[in-house]
Amino acid sequence: MKKTKLVTGLGVLALAAAVLVAADHIDAPDAMGTSADIADFYAFEPSEGSDNTVFAVDLQSNVLPDLAYGTFDENVLTEINIDTDDDLVEDLVIQAIPRDGKMYFFGPVAPSSTGISGEVMVDSPLGSVDISSDTAIVETTDDGVSLFAGPRQDAFFFDFFQFNAVIGGMAPQGFKPAGDPDATDDDDTTAVDTFDGANTMSIVVEIPNSLLGETTAVNVLGLPVYKTWVTTNSKQ
């Protein structure tokens, strides 16, 4: 089986698939500001009772609309790891790697090795899509898999400056966060989305669960889920 070896895990972010989100804006210096920098990872059903699962990976969270759009690094492999038997070891992987303006996807397939090292599973193609710029391009394969890659507005809402003020003990007197049931009109509840107007470089896969197989993994509610996390690996 022909494979391309990529090593050196640069970033990792994990969650259990349900309607969940995890955030990790700005990774270590080696990954920061590149498409190896994992910002957010979402895994969810597109609608209640759907037979599909959506995986959305947001990378490089400092892509501003008034600057040139960011690009995907062709030396970085993004890997969605899927645990189906609740042992927190990946049983399947979905991989994405850019080449010449397109994002190529592989899997879902059992990895040849587990952990932070990865090999491009070129014998298990899933599909490809042109990388979007200002117009979204979605490609749907004959297997019902929908693929997207390109800039999207950062969905993460966070008031970074107010957070620092609270942590530093400098929050305004009477401050109560917006949504606090005890907040009144006299409380300073104004929140500012620090990430408003910023973009991420996003990779999205909507895939039928039939391609992922059965799962014995369960979440904290006792519901069957695909436990999943994402890694980025740099070519050696």
Rank of each mutant, 00 (worst) to 15 (best):
A217H: 06
T8D: 08
E48A: 14
F161K: 12
N81T: 08
L212P: 03
N219D: 15
A36C: 07
L147D: 01
N199M: 10
A178G: 11
F160R: 13
T78N: 02
P111D: 00
A155F: 03
L221D: 14
V192Y: 13
V122C: 05
L221H: 11
T114D: 09
D73S: 10
S113F: 13
I116L: 13
G150R: 01
T216G: 08
Y69P: 09
A17F: 02
P111C: 06
V220T: 14
T189E: 02
R152N: 06
F44I: 00
F175Q: 04
G168P: 03
L77F: 04
D193Q: 02
T140R: 03
Q236R: 10
A136R: 13
I203N: 02
L6N: 06
A136D: 15
P181C: 06
T114R: 15
A183T: 05
L6A: 09
A183K: 07
S117L: 06
L20K: 13
D27S: 13
A56M: 05
P208H: 09
S202I: 00
D130Q: 13
A149I: 01
A171K: 07
P172C: 11
A16Q: 10
V19P: 09
V205G: 00
A28I: 14
T184H: 12
P111S: 06
F55I: 02
M32D: 11
T84K: 07
T4I: 15
Q162R: 15
I38M: 05
A31Q: 03
P108Y: 02
D51V: 01
A36W: 00
T228C: 01
P151G: 04
F156L: 11
F160S: 08
D27I: 01
D91H: 08
E214S: 10
F41W: 03
P151L: 00
E79K: 10
N233T: 15
F105L: 03
N75T: 10
T71W: 01
S128C: 04
V109H: 07
A14V: 05
D134F: 11
T190Y: 12
V57R: 00
F44Y: 10
K3P: 02
V57L: 11
A43V: 04
F163C: 09
V230L: 01
G118K: 09
D188H: 07
